[in-house]
């Protein structure tokens, strides 16, 4: 049916070398560095006509998705957002909010266990966000 294995990582030339700026000790930044490593993308110091990626402070929001007739929450939605500002080599600057959504069911009788589930989901959402950032970078530097 025409599918074949992806030959190379098909990274646009502009992404061969990038510079990365992020808040100190940012978990998502270290995961993004691993992902760059995986795609043979070299992280170098910021310089002339080198694509510069700025990760801003990531944040987690929560919103109610569905309620029970008693007024108790049935499902929450977690909204993980990491704003990314990309300075492409030809000088234009794009700021985009990478957003990953997850819903999870509320269980008011197990507050501590639900907190652990929330931490687990945030961990998974960060990996998802890293893939989304890669998609954004390829899209912005696509010739």
């Amino acid at each position: 049916c025409g599918f074949q294995l992806r030959g190379s990582y098909q990274i646009p030339a502009q992404l061969a070398q990038v510079s990365l700026e992020a808040p100190a000790r940012s978990e998502i930044a270290s995961r993004l560095r691993d992902e760059f490593d995986r795609y043979d993308i070299q992280v170098v110091a910021r310089g002339q006509d080198i694509t510069h990626i700025e990760l801003l402070e990531d944040s987690l929001d929560r919103r109610v998705l569905s309620l029970l007739i008693s007024g108790q929450v049935a499902e929450y939605e977690l909204i993980y957002t990491v704003p990314v500002r990309v300075h492409t080599a030809n000088g234009d600057i794009q700021l985009q909010d990478i957003q990953v959504l997850r819903d999870y069911q509320e269980d008011p009788n197990f507050a501590l266990a639900k907190t652990r589930e929330l931490e687990l989901l945030v961990n998974e959402m960060r990996s998802d966000a890293v893939h989304r950032i890669m998609l954004l970078l390829t899209q912005l530097t696509w010739e």
């Binding site: 944040s59 987690l60 929001d61 929560r62 919103r63 109610v64 998705l65 309620l67 909204i79």
Partner: peptide
């Protein structure tokens, strides 16, 4: 209730 967001 549905619109409100609570930051973590």
């Amino acid at each position: 209730i549905f619109g409100y967001r609570r930051p973590f």
